[in-house]
Simulated scan of single mutants.
Amino acid sequence: MWLRKVPVIIKTGQENQEEIDFLDTPTIQYLEEGFDSELICDITGDPEPTVTWSFEGKKISYGDKYAKVSETSNNLIVSNVTLKDAGAYACKAVQVSPRITEMKDLPIDVKVHHKPLWNDDKTKAYSFVDGSVNLTCEVKAEPEANFTWTKDNGVIYPSDSAQIFNDNNTSILQLKVNDSRMFGDYLCIAQNKLGTLERVIILQQGEKPAVPTAKVTVEGVDRLELSIDAKNHPEMPIVGYRVQYKEAGEDWSQAQSTYFKKASIYVLENLKNDTPYVLRAASKNAAGLSDYSVEVTKRTEKIISSASTSASFSISSCVALLLFLLVSASLL
């Protein structure tokens, strides 16, 4: 059952005062791209409020773009709607009389219904046999788009070699490349009630990156500095490294992972002091990740407290003084 808000009426002597009430005005509203669309501001009050509209904080003036529905309505007509008309609107009401002055405004989040539009320009991807790859389709659409993936005119469904993840106008087709037949053209279809968009993403066979060599060059109390290097393929250079690290004795399933863009020094930070760590690295190029390198084990340094330092210094001083006295006595 639909219920309508009842306005609050305050009695002051012989007169009734009705406060501003936006009743059931929606705080999220929609415009239709390419059409003239109406925004609702359902309001009541006594004395009758004067209503104005604003968009992105600026007062709206009536003209070719904006108009009132009628003299008796506070609704707003937005002409020839485009995506630029989406944003933050406000319906503002003012009551002024000898017995009351009140101002209220209602923020309204306005979205524009439109067909899917591409939000990226990805048309190529690379992998290698026994590798894995993500093919991504990303669009802007309202209402949200539904996605379909096809290859060789057949719809792709989740399987051992393919998984599909859809969320917030983005679809990811995750492939395990079991054999060379999986290379080729993949069609992504994005669709809502206002239109359909299609794009071919070409999965090409690339070169698996070489396994890197990794070594620790500097050990700190809470950090390890690394040197990592791998042989480049001339047509598919190394772009970065993934480093996995764990405390000695832990399983690799418990390891942490950090990705570094290719540089000269790589630093693992926020480590425990005086703790042995095991690490390994994989190189990355456009086709994916290499196998992991040989494991390297290094211990972070121990924290030396100021008290220990002072005590050590005091003992050393005492030993030095004693030796001095013994030498002096032997010379007498």
Rank of each mutant, 00 (worst) to 15 (best):
K261G: 12
M1A: 15
A214K: 14
K272P: 03
T50D: 04
S54Y: 00
A255E: 04
M103D: 07
Q205S: 04
A286F: 00
I202T: 14
Y277I: 02
A141F: 08
N178T: 08
G240C: 03
I43R: 12
P276D: 15
Q256C: 03
T44C: 06
Y66W: 07
D274G: 06
V200I: 07
S37Q: 06
Q254E: 11
K272H: 15
Q191V: 00
K84E: 09
N146Q: 02
T25P: 12
V177L: 10
L31T: 02
L106N: 06
G220N: 15
P26Y: 00
V94A: 05
I20E: 10
T309I: 15
D105S: 09
W2T: 03
D185L: 01
E102A: 13
I60V: 13
L322D: 01
F165Q: 13
D21M: 08
L279A: 07
E138I: 04
Y30C: 09
I303N: 08
T148L: 14
V327S: 10
V129P: 11
E56I: 03
V112N: 04
D121F: 06
S159L: 06
V327R: 05
T300G: 10
L76Y: 03
D130T: 12
A162Y: 11
E102K: 11
K59R: 07
D120M: 03
D24F: 04
S330H: 12
K262G: 06
I43G: 11
K115V: 14
G57E: 03
G63F: 03
S312D: 05
N146R: 02
S328I: 01
Q95T: 03
T50M: 04
R181M: 14
F147W: 07
I28S: 08
Q174Y: 13
T25V: 08
K124G: 12
L325P: 00
E198Q: 15
L322N: 10
L106S: 05
N168Q: 02
L197K: 07
V200A: 06
V78D: 14
W149Y: 11
P143T: 12
P49F: 02
M1P: 06
N168P: 00
I189G: 09
S161N: 04
T150I: 10
K92I: 02
F55P: 00
